[in-house]
Amino acid sequence: MVGIVVKGIAGFYYVKAEDVVYQCKARGIFKKDGIKVAVGDIVEIQLNEGSDALITEIKERRNSFVRPPIVNVDCFAVVFAAANPEPNFAIIDRFLVMAEKSNTDIIICVNKIDLGKNDIIDKLKSIYQGVYPMVFLSGKTGEGIDDLKELLTGKKCALAGPSGVGKSTILNDLEPMAAVETGEISEKTKRGKHTTRHVEIFDTAFGAMIFDTPGFTSFEVLEADEQELAHLYPEMQEYLGQCKYDNCRHIKEPDCSVREAVAEGKISKSRYHSYVEQIKEIREKSRKW
């Protein structure tokens, strides 16, 4: 019987197959081979006497992630807040690079628009609109949730983003049966308290499956190399290959089409700054190795 792993806690995996959720253990050979079952895995299970079952095979994965530990993601909804906390563009761009590298669809969700100032919202639009689909919503009031549902229908989607931006509130709006615990922003750190303690997939009434993942502040984007990174910025694509040098990294090289596009306002200076900082990180890591 084939199913999908919807939750994993304390060595048990919960697999949904034919509209029934089975509590499963994994075959010992997986651990021996260094393979971990992850939420989102499509697996073959063997039913035993009683309610328990055994995971006997893990099907080929579309993609996989270490943090959060999820696999087979169709779409990332990158969530950040218009206020409380204010958006950190460097962190947003790390999430976007990660999602691009994994070949998933990407949706940018700007939450807490009821708290955000117009100038912040306008800045977000100027940077990302036209690059990715954007949804402006309020998890608190429900405004914009129907727009998000329309984009998520038929997909397995992860809500990614720093803690405190309202991912759990949005999940509860998307699927009230999830009843995910939500938390307040810490007055001391101005960051969200980590209310999600394990990874789980929730089915929704509108035809999407949503990963709920623990809050975190950044992704390791350094798996990308220097040559690859520019390809993970969609707005740079049309300018690649037009530079004077074939191996141009778009940092200080003369006659660089990407830098010219930035100067002409065709590529956001904020996005370009993130790109440069990530190139520096990649180089620093390579020197350490």
Rank of each mutant, 00 (worst) to 15 (best):
V43P: 07
R287G: 05
K190A: 12
L137P: 07
K36M: 12
S286E: 15
E226W: 02
C24I: 11
S51K: 15
A178M: 03
G11D: 10
D225Q: 04
V39S: 04
I251V: 14
A158R: 07
T182S: 11
L174T: 02
C256D: 00
A158K: 05
A261R: 01
P254V: 01
P68T: 07
K266A: 00
I29Q: 13
D114F: 12
D146E: 15
V2D: 01
C75T: 06
A208Q: 04
Y245L: 00
D105S: 10
V73I: 07
A53N: 10
S257Y: 02
V6A: 01
E86C: 09
C248V: 02
R287Y: 11
S64N: 10
G3C: 05
G154K: 02
K266E: 01
N172H: 10
T104Y: 00
K101T: 02
Y22I: 06
K252G: 02
R67M: 04
Q46N: 12
D203T: 07
K125C: 05
N172C: 07
W289K: 14
R94P: 03
F211P: 04
S138P: 06
G166R: 09
G215P: 12
D119Q: 11
S168C: 12
C157V: 15
A208D: 04
E220R: 12
G207M: 00
I107M: 03
V39A: 10
E86Y: 14
Y14L: 06
R197V: 12
I201P: 00
A179L: 09
A10T: 10
E223R: 04
D173Q: 15
M98L: 11
K59R: 13
A10M: 10
R191W: 00
P176Q: 09
F211T: 10
G116H: 10
I42K: 14
G40M: 03
S268M: 07
